[in-house]
Design a protein around this nucleic acid. Structure first.
Lengths: 231, 231
DNA sequence: GCCTCACCTTGCGCCACGACAAAGACGGGG
DNA sequence: CCCCGTCTTTGTCGTGGCGCAAGGTGAGGC
């Protein structure tokens, strides 16, 4: 297995204000792992023995209900930590991260966390910020699901994906990883049928351009208008 | 203003593993404040200059959408920290905490947080656990809103309130603070009309007993069954 | 090049739930 | 004790979007 790219890691907000030597010691205990699309990093309910950082690629974190319904709780982007169950006072993982694209993660045994945080409060502070942002985003989603109709929720979800995984192209901004209608449905609490209908309608208005596991936003302002409820 | 009850604070999980002298220094910078029912501690959008701990009482944290729709993001229970915007990388408060019952909060200026965390990593670790649990709960609510019908969501919300604010009584378990149908609606993403209908149906089956701003659960097992979808 | 699987589209009927409306009941304040 | 505001109940109606069903289409494997 190749070496971990030091400069990439050094630049992450999670490790801001951390000394190089501390970072070196932390990385020396890390294990790198490649994950192919469709593969999982760990499984929901499994005992949490490690925590993770996504270096490259993209992960969808899913939860399944007792009835077998699946939802996507979150998309993990490069630089994000995940599988943080232990720091959150759980002994099992609450969800399953599935690689949407070819990905590379690094992982540490749980003990490493407590050990390093004691010596390096910045790590805890930075991690808290990251978790705090996730909490904010979760509250935003709750508010949207409680008050908005499906089309607006889908618009919001797409805008969020643009910001987090958008890639400028000639015709507009492409969502930079394979994303099915089903995925979008599981992110917005609806069905793939409804998402498909919405995308079709948008496409005929020139707002987006679809495709198999593809999505390209051509008219962001109009999408924003839809998200604000001006439909 | 009376003294802060030291032993009460000492027992909070947030301050576990913290030395008495550190805790004393932290408390010496705290300000105590009484909040009457209906009053707010701060307002959504206001610049975040302080963070808070609820000592007594109960707060409902609301968010209003640009359209004026209101939802309850969270209920704050005694011992919880809130108004933590700064640690979460925001400079304004994302919601408005309103006292549901007579409450007492203590507050600190923002600088205190960074200062104390540097010397006392446990504080950061404990705070992260608390935020982590809130994140879990938020994900649970998202999953519920995405996959469950209204009645089940209401059942889940009531069960959660029982666990967090239940008080054993002769006839069952009472939710220990004033709670309107509207509140429950704002917690579950529905309307007060629907909540009222659901409570009426439950009452006629002997599962709960309602009242003006009151709720008493008489048959928890059946409520759990409803929450699991056996209706 | 063809087959097959996975993904996507579209139509139709139904129902849970929200919108609207109106009237009852509890409780605090004067 | 009565008044008024707030909270609650209950009815009717309309509809967004889900369930079900059937048929397209692109991509990868052999």
């Amino acid at each position: 297995m190749a070496e971990i790219d030091r400069s990439l890691v050094r630049a992450l907000p999670l490790f801001a204000n951390m000394s190089d030597s501390d970072l070196d010691r932390l990385l020396s205990r890390a294990i790198m792992r490649r994950v192919a699309p469709g593969e999982t990093v760990f499984e929901q309910g499994q005992k949490a023995t490690q925590f993770f950082l996504l270096l490259h690629g993209r992960l969808k974190v899913t939860q399944v209900t007792p009835e077998g319904q699946q939802i996507i709780v979150r998309v993990v982007h490069p630089g994000d930590i995940f599988g943080f169950a232990q720091a959150l006072q759980r002994d099992d993982y609450p969800g399953t991260p599935i690689a949407a694209a070819e990905s590379v993660v690094i992982c540490w045994p749980n003990e490493v966390w407590a050990h390093f945080v004691e010596q390096n409060p910045h790590l805890a502070i930075n991690a808290m910020r990251s978790i705090g942002q996730r909490l904010q985003e979760a509250h935003t989603r709750i508010r949207e699901m409680a008050t908005e109709e499906v089309e607006r929720r889908v618009a919001h979800a797409v805008l969020r994906l643009m910001d987090q995984a958008g890639k400028r192209e000639a015709e507009g901004v492409r969502i930079d990883f394979p994303l099915t209608r089903q995925d979008v449905a599981e992110m917005t609490g609806t069905t793939l049928h409804t998402v498909s209908r919405i995308f079709s309608a948008w496409e005929s208005r020139g707002i987006v351009k679809g495709g198999r596991q593809k999505l390209l936003v051509r008219d962001r302002p109009r999408l924003e208008a839809l998200a604000e409820g001006e439909g």
